[in-house]
Nucleic acid binder design. Structure first.
Lengths: 205, 205
DNA sequence: GTCTATATTCAGATAGAC
DNA sequence: GTCTATCTGAATATAGAC
């Protein structure tokens, strides 16, 4: 609570540096030296503050994965109608990813490559209640004749796919379509509205 | 041309082993020793047949990336109507991924992490003509009043997102929804039809 | 808490016999 | 072509002075 600069103390500096390096390079690609350099300290400090590379990684991973499903549960509890809930989730989800574009690939990749590193128990604890609530909302909407019948799991997969995948596939999209950085950003902005309407268009009766 | 077994010669054995290891662990996570073990030879052989790790990786990557967009160009040239083209692409694309479920994550991840390793030029050469043809087909369908106006890039992104992303997110999907391996396979089978209809439902006039 | 120097382990690559 | 043994460099981790 002293200086309150951004990188107040050494621990903060390390965590900030580790976050950048791990998210950019992944666990196996990251180098402790890179983290030390970026934090402007030396390698020995890393081990003073954090037992080893794995511990440091686990911290960063769990912190990062926690950002993946922000306030969706509150959103599901709100009194918005079903379609507006979809609109809100899509918009805020894409917005989160625009702010942190590397997170989806980072999380998905590490979950595939390092299934043991505690992410399973982490998510099982975290298991966002919003999934259950979302499934329920879908089933209700079907019963009420508001939308066409569809397996809720497919609908949820479709939604998150269209939100997250373009960021994962960004390098390929840029090559295949010829869009540049700024146009890509514009496209992602558009998707905050477009994806929701695309979904609603498809399921509404 | 002698034995014609599956792993006839050493080179084949190495390539098969390298393919498995690289796709599972990625470039930075793969170990030459793992490849040698899996190929049932020793490390020295790897360097006898392939200059170094990078060369071997580049080969595997390009071979693998080449599988990503199979015969789509032929398909676009066929005389199927627009909706049936979508149905065909979705079905055959998901089918390819079911056969090779790790490919999307592998390719996307390495393109992000190792943008220099020649994938850019590779895809610019390969640049599947089907994208241009697909865009054209979408624009035609809009002009003909067959479908609602939509930016072709968004439509293409939506389609490939829904096809590929569930495989990338598989570990998370299994945790969040509680589905097991076999149910997951069933879901993916269903998507060969479901995704196309979901899209068509959304855009048809 | 922070640093320099060093230990240790691991991984990629090579030499050289057969 | 194939192997064993070895070299070299890199990366994680630790010891110990300040």
């Amino acid at each position: 609570m002293a200086k309150k600069g951004k990188d107040t103390n050494t621990e903060e500096k390390i965590l900030n540096a580790a976050r950048q390096v791990f998210i950019e390079k992944g666990l196996s690609g990251a180098r402790m030296q890179d983290i030390a350099d970026k934090a402007e300290i030396n390698k020995a400090m890393l081990h003073y503050y954090f037992k080893n590379k794995e511990m440091l990684f686990k911290l960063i991973f769990q912190e990062t994965a926690g950002k993946l499903f922000p306030h969706f549960e509150k959103l599901m509890d709100s009194d918005l109608n079903f379609f507006d809930k979809i609109r809100s989730i899509v918009a805020s989800y894409i917005d989160v990813i625009i702010q942190n574009p590397y997170i989806p690939l980072f999380v998905m990749n590490e979950m595939n490559k390092n299934p043991e590193i505690g992410m399973k128990t982490f998510f099982e604890a975290q298991k966002p209640g919003f999934v259950k609530k979302f499934r329920q909302a879908i089933e209700n909407s079907i019963e009420m004749g508001l939308i066409e019948p569809i397996n809720p799991i497919h609908l949820i997969m479709n939604m998150f796919s269209m939100c997250a995948f373009p960021f994962i596939a960004k390098p390929m999209i840029k090559i295949l379509t010829g869009v540049e950085e700024e146009q890509f950003r514009n496209l992602m902005e558009q998707r905050k509205v477009l994806v929701a309407e695309f979904i609603i268009n498809s399921i509404k009766k």
